[in-house]
Design a protein around this nucleic acid. Structure first.
Length: 468
RNA sequence: CGGGGUAUAGCGCAGUCUGGUAGCGCGGAAGUUUUGGGUACUUCAGGUCGUAGGUUCGAAUCCUGCUACCCCGACCA
């Protein structure tokens, strides 16, 4: 592709893009022009509520077992989750890059995991009969990148992450994107000179994870975990409590009321980070694999929480497991080569979409937390074609959009009941209901999806209330 | 990977036992009606019945192989 002259039109595109307040460039939409294939009936294969609602709301479409297309509404949520994750990763000092999905088998032969990983790894041959694979994780590749450039301890600490599709050929994918074969993962990898530094890196990610899940409106509890095929000796899973969770968890009641570390916490202060870690690991919390019935039994009855949970994040400190095998070494201050200390830190954004629905729904549909709603506001025009309601809705739509509020305007020529049902199903936090009767009295109805609270306001008051 | 099941219109299903050339509800299109919680009616469009082969005058239906998908269990972000 050759060079392209910068026309005035192109400049406008850039200005517009940077002018948008949302990092993903999301914006408003008219439902009549959108692609949101909602289903009135529940598809039979969907067993759990999040899967049912994602299919009904037109967020995903299954293409193969455990492989999903993300339709526009679902993609918006996924992108908003990614935005929150990015902000918190960046805040904690991690740096984003992007590695490919396809990897060479040779890399995995170096670490010894090509044979060890088993049938979950999708193995492919290219046209030259070279062994390739679709990455189930990226420890090998990031280590290869690291060793290609970093030679000195002065370049440490370093934490690199990406948000990329993974493939794990699960024996039995199920529950929609909760356990799919292809899934999106944010995976970060830390490199440090020594164990103390690595411990600090671990604590920083630990803190970033607490903040990330809290911002998504989730109460995530860190629990000591098995390290599995990643290896290592220190590992925590972040579990949110949900009745449809796949694993059984046990924890102290205090976790439900602990304060999330603030945004301005000093990530560079080792003592502060260790303090966060100590606070959040000081009480009993374990999944069933790591459960110590005696220790749990020693708690007061009122402190015991026994529930089901969904794993939404998993962090590992594994020392020199990969740096030894793959010779990722730096020169230390003493001039001697040492293998770097590593950790890896994963969050599954695609699973989080489902987990968020599990934690936020009612009989009528999804109830999105503000931070990740596909649109923050929905406008329902109850009588399309009526001059007054059309004008009022157009005005609300334009002004909210201008103020940077993501709006979905239901301008379809449809029954009011259908619009109410649609709005509730897709779960936008705020609904502005514009009907001819109340509009004749200068009022629109503003409904809060979560509380169900309804207010009759003037259009200006409604705009003001919703941040425009 | 063990066990069980399903495959017929975009979705949910009937028809298969007993072979005769495919039907219902929802959804879609056109229209009338209705207008604050999925309105009612009329008309229309849409299916080589998962796939390959076999039996038969004739196969969605009977037989054989294959594939895909789902569910239960053991494993995982």
């Amino acid at each position: 592709m050759g060079l392209v002259a910068h026309t005035p039109a192109m400049r406008l595109i850039w200005i517009t893009r940077f002018a948008f307040p949302s990092p993903s460039g999301l914006n408003s939409m008219r439902l009549s022009r959108y692609f949101m294939p909602i289903l009135r009936e529940t598809p039979k294969e969907a067993e759990i509520v999040s899967h049912r609602l994602m299919l009904r709301a037109g967020m995903i479409r299954q293409e193969s077992a455990g492989i999903y297309a993300w339709l526009p509404l679902g993609l918006r949520v996924l992108n908003k989750i990614n935005d929150v994750i990015r902000e918190e990763q960046n805040r904690a000092g991690a740096i984003e890059l992007l590695m490919p999905t396809m990897q060479s088998a040779d890399l995995w032969r170096e670490s010894g995991r090509y044979d060890a990983y088993g049938k979950e790894m999708l193995r492919i041959k290219d046209r030259h009969e070279r062994d390739m694979l679709f990455g189930p994780t990226n420890e090998e590749m990031i280590t290869e990148i690291f060793r290609g450039y970093v030679r000195s301890y002065k370049d440490l600490p370093l934490n690199l992450y990406h948000i990329q599709w993974k493939f794990r050929d699960e024996v039995r994918p199920r529950f929609g994107v909760m356990r799919s074969r292809e899934f999106l993962m944010k995976d970060a990898y830390s490199f440090d000179l020594d164990a103390e530094g690595a411990r600090h890196s671990y604590n920083k990610m630990f803190t970033a994870y607490l903040r990330t899940f809290a911002r998504l409106g989730l109460k995530a509890i860190p629990m000591r975990a098995d390290t599995g095929p990643i290896g290592g000796n220190l590992s925590h899973e972040f579990i949110i409590l949900a009745s449809t969770g796949e694993s059984e968890v046990f924890c102290h009641n205090d976790f439900l009321s602990m304060d999330t570390p603030p945004a301005n916490i000093d990530f560079d202060d080792r003592a502060v980070m260790q303090g966060v870690f100590d606070t959040w690991t000081g009480k009993y919390a374990a999944t069933s694999e790591m459960h110590d019935a005696a220790a749990f039994g020693a708690l007061a009855e009122s402190d015991k929480v026994s529930a089901r949970g969904i794993e939404v994040g998993h962090i590992f400190y594994f020392g020199t497991k990969y740096s030894d095998a793959m010779k990722a070494v730096v020169n230390g201050p003493d001039g001697k080569e040492v293998a770097v200390q590593m950790g890896s830190y994963g969050i599954g954004p695609s699973r989080l979409v489902a987990a968020l629905i599990e934690a936020n729904h009612d009989d009528n549909g999804v109830i999105w937390p503000e931070a990740i709603a596909p649109f923050r506001v929905g406008i329902a025009n109850l009588k399309v074609g009526d001059a007054a309601t059309d004008a009022a809705c157009n005005d609300l739509y334009a002004k909210l959009g201008k103020a940077g509020v993501d709006v979905l305007y239901d301008d379809r020529d449809d029954r009011p009941g259908a619009k109410f049902a649609t709005m509730d199903l897709i779960g936008l936090p705020h609904q502005i209901i514009v009907g001819p009767k109340s509009l004749a009295e200068g009022r629109v109805e503003v409904k809060n999806r979560r509380t169900g609270a309804r207010e009759m306001l003037s259009p200006d008051e409604a705009l003001n209330k919703l941040g425009a």
